[in-house]
Amino acid sequence: MGHVVRAGAAAGLLDPATGHGPIARRDARLRVVAEAAFAVTVVALARLDVLALALACAIAAMLLARLPVAQTLRRVAAMDTFIVVMIAMLPFTVPGTPAFELFDLVASWEGLAKAAAIALKANAVVLMAMALLSTLEPVTLARALRGLGMPERLVHLVLFTVRYVDVLDQEYRRLRTAMRARGFRPANSRHTYVSFGYLVGMMLVRALERSERILKAMKCRGFSGRLTLDARWEPGRGDVAFGAVFTGLILGLIVLEAQGGIAA
């Protein structure tokens, strides 16, 4: 995953994908709710044609959100490499009508269908999440989560994490540069793993010292455990339209599933 994530050297790890287009201006809370509803609905669907339609909707949303297509698909493909083993085994482990044989193993149609369903669900949900949410500023996402009732402390934790991910990533790169300057090259050796262990240990030590300075700075400014997290709820015409279209999409998927597929 590293090479995917680190493609842009100067960019921060959590920089939102360049956002314009009809989705970029929508209210963050609305987008979080929309993604949650979409995810729960898609996971509950079973028909492959309806799931394919859901994936098509997610791809459409990705295009509407003006996400960089190549980079987004690379990230989704990186997730797919995780599940490919499990998916590839399913046709052979689900009993049912034989579809084909491979090295004496019998693949069943039922297993193939189940594998396809999981692949469609996983990709549709993640693509929609990237379309609706990865275009948000992380801080905006945190405020939206607070607006939707996430506990205040958990939101603080999100804010601090978001704030320091890039700082620590740069610290990591500095330490790696220092190691490279001393001739360190990763290999399959105990030395490599121990060196990485020291690297992580050093990062933790520095992180803790950094957090002590942060706390002092915050106390100096009178921090008492509260941060301003106001997010005004001013739905515009576009938000109402977005909500209506998205509700229609989810209801449409449910109705199609209940009626027995797109063809019916």
């Binding site: 601090f160 994490t161 320091y164 620590l168 990062m203 933790l204 992180a207 803790l208 706390l215």
Partner: peptide
């Protein structure tokens, strides 16, 4: 919270 946040980022 700052310590937990920075460690979480680490």
């Amino acid at each position: 919270i700052p310590a937990a946040g920075v460690l979480s980022a680490t």
